[in-house]
């Protein structure tokens, strides 16, 4: 990777990488690890980019895959090494956005399943159903229904009806 590669090919998409990594982490330290790992994987896999999809779609896909992989690893580690009394899902106090409503929304998103988190993030990023399906690797027809269900669930979480 030339230093230009990061600036020209990753940095313009840093926003979505940050948003995705935030949805899968609970601390600044984890977030930075995830972000770096995503950048590293993009650089490592850049030769595999076949231009069959847009570069941005490809970045979304890598970001998502890295986040899901790291989350899985983290869960395994938690199961093996951390006592049950410590909840891995607790969000650190210093790990917050300046906007309080956004923090509440993120907390709610973190309560969703891994795939639902990805679906809703991509939806909120105004990706089309086709693009979401392409990134996640599912049928576009199911995405609309899924988004509606997730939004209902998020609303319930935000209204405090479910934990």
């Amino acid at each position: 990777m030339s230093s230009d590669f990061y600036k020209s090919s990753i940095l313009p998409f840093a926003g979505i990488i940050i948003k995705l990594c935030r949805a899968y982490t609970n601390s600044q330290e984890d977030f930075e690890d995830y972000y770096q790992e995503v950048c590293l994987q993009i650089w490592r896999s850049k030769d595999n980019f076949r231009e069959e999809s847009q570069w941005s779609t490809w970045i979304y896909r890598i970001s998502l895959n890295v986040c899901l992989t790291l989350l899985k690893k983290k869960k395994n580690n938690v199961q093996h090494f951390v006592s049950d009394s410590i909840t891995a899902e607790e969000t650190e106090n210093n790990y917050a956005f300046p906007n309080e409503s956004l923090n509440l929304l993120y907390d709610a998103i973190r309560k969703l399943s891994e795939i639902d988190r990805a679906v809703i993030m991509l939806y909120l990023e105004e990706k089309s159903q086709k693009e979401i399906a392409e990134i996640i690797g599912t049928n576009p027809n199911n995405i609309g229904v899924r988004v509606r269900r997730i939004k209902i669930r998020l609303k319930k979480i935000l209204d405090g009806k479910i934990n």
């Binding site: 926003g15 948003k19 906007n99 409503s101 956004l102 509440l104 929304l105 909120l124 939004k151 609303k155």
Partner: peptide, 9 residues
């Protein structure tokens, strides 16, 4: 949630 998202960022 769309508005929270948009305004938050």
């Amino acid at each position: 949630i769309e508005n929270i998202w948009r305004e938050g960022f």
